[in-house]
Design a protein around this nucleic acid. Sequence first.
DNA 1: CTGAAAGCGCTTACAG
DNA 2: CTGAAAGCGCTTACAG
Lengths: 325, 325
Amino acid sequence: MARVAGVSQATVSLVMGDKWRGRVSERTAEAVRTAARELGYRPNLAARNLRLGLTRTALLVVPALTNEFFARVHTGAARVAAEHGMGVVLYPSPEGTGPARDPFASSRATLDGVIASSMAAEALTDIRAGGLPLVMLDSDPARPEAAGTVNLDIADGTRQVARHLLALGHRRIAHLAADVDSWTFRVRARALTEALTSAGAAVVRSEPAALTVAAGLSAAERALTGPGPRPTALVCDDDVLAAGACKAARRLGLRVPDDVSVTGFDDLAMATAVDPELTTVRLPAESVGEAGMRALIKVLDGEDPAPVTLPVDLIVRDSTTAAPR
Amino acid sequence: MARVAGVSQATVSLVMGDKWRGRVSERTAEAVRTAARELGYRPNLAARNLRLGLTRTALLVVPALTNEFFARVHTGAARVAAEHGMGVVLYPSPEGTGPARDPFASSRATLDGVIASSMAAEALTDIRAGGLPLVMLDSDPARPEAAGTVNLDIADGTRQVARHLLALGHRRIAHLAADVDSWTFRVRARALTEALTSAGAAVVRSEPAALTVAAGLSAAERALTGPGPRPTALVCDDDVLAAGACKAARRLGLRVPDDVSVTGFDDLAMATAVDPELTTVRLPAESVGEAGMRALIKVLDGEDPAPVTLPVDLIVRDSTTAAPR
DNA sequence: CTGAAAGCGCTTACAG
DNA sequence: CTGAAAGCGCTTACAG
């Protein structure tokens, strides 16, 4: 390339890196650009990475890709990254929220830092071993592993759900709990119990369920047909579970929301795909991604980003109404 | 590292690369491994990439991440990649199926090849400019851009839908067509028209819709309330659209499937989340990813992979029944 | 069985 | 304003 343009390697580097102003003549720069265009020349990133010792690439580790939440987190992260000349590469951890295999062996990308969303802190030891700056999203803020944290106010979202249901007169409330060991779901369970008991109501039953429609359906069946008076509301950890819960209610001959109110969490596309549309908690997923990338960039710049907690909103739709009788 | 282990750089390289057998003594190899463990040493990938001229990493370009189909394609591709010591990095093209910005500028990873799923061929010119081997998934097999292609038998899936509906006595069928310019949707439209007209039926109406529940809903409203006799069946390009169509029917006081049958496509989680569950076409997404990665590996090995077409299956559930009257 | 040396393609002082 | 040189950390012949 340098030969074709009739200049030195150094000059090519300056021009391609847009650092030539005041150091290379306009004429020479133009010649380099022309030659690059004709040759389809692209700087070898591996060489640049080696020389610079950084890659301007971040890895976003997520538990699974089947959830729009993570897609939106990525969108937000990628936007902020682009503004800073960085890129984001996705690593869907093959084992859900469990131990993430070393992404370096897997993605083989060289990375400047990693952002992990909704992962168990323990699941990230392999990644930590790389010594890379780590920003944790939607994870236990008390864990000291991360150089930065961005959280959703999950507890508040759960409290909003509880208050909404209490205001509608519900007192017997069951919880369809995601059968996933992560901070975000532990918070939901704890906040729900606290909010209800402090108001004189109670979680009359808690049913664990994997994050699928079918699992939500059978958990809801158990919750609605178990011993004791039937719950009048089902609080679900996730919209997918809530969709299953609505189907279960219908199969039992119960109307949603007249006989049973159902709430979701996340506000995925599924929340409005089902009938009735789900009352749920909307999570600012893109903002989470944006804040996460901003935090990582600060860490990379040697700064110490303050922890961020983002508010969430209850979206009241048609799956909740006044408790029967 | 070499200094700590008391051996040369070359020896370290041999041991870390697992190429030491018969060339380095067991004793020395063990010493290297121990030192590596203690130091938390990891070979610098940028240096290795530079030296080797390859990265054993493939890029998977997808239109968007909000769809499980692509998540499953990735899962399949990653599995095959891992078996061959490769990794797969995801690149969700920011503009849907439209022009993909140069992923090299964005992901900054150095790549051996790219796999593109469901993208318009024209959208990949930037990527092609990199001169990397390209495998296209779920894309026009007639385009010569790709070194390998893996397709779904979308036309056959559409024909299965048509035959199913015809057998149920439907003759007035409307099409909710995804408002996305890609091969996969063009095939659906063409195959549907052909299958119906050759059986003496017809697509009485075709309504374009973006790939959201809300868009599906309003497109279905248009299809069901337009001039002429009402269609008895709605063939939707996608499960999301079908979910919207079911809601539209219900709002118009029509029962699904008794008054209108509705079919989806893809068999996403949403297909069983809604009530009634959707009759739809199941796509072997993971197999698509696996076959795509296998094809890329062949190309990388200098072979010429044969085009693959994977069969798809109609899944009959509760959203279709005999035509009314 | 082990080490010294070359070279992958960049970027960045440094010299002219 | 431009070029020659060093060096990032590997891997791979090659020599011993």
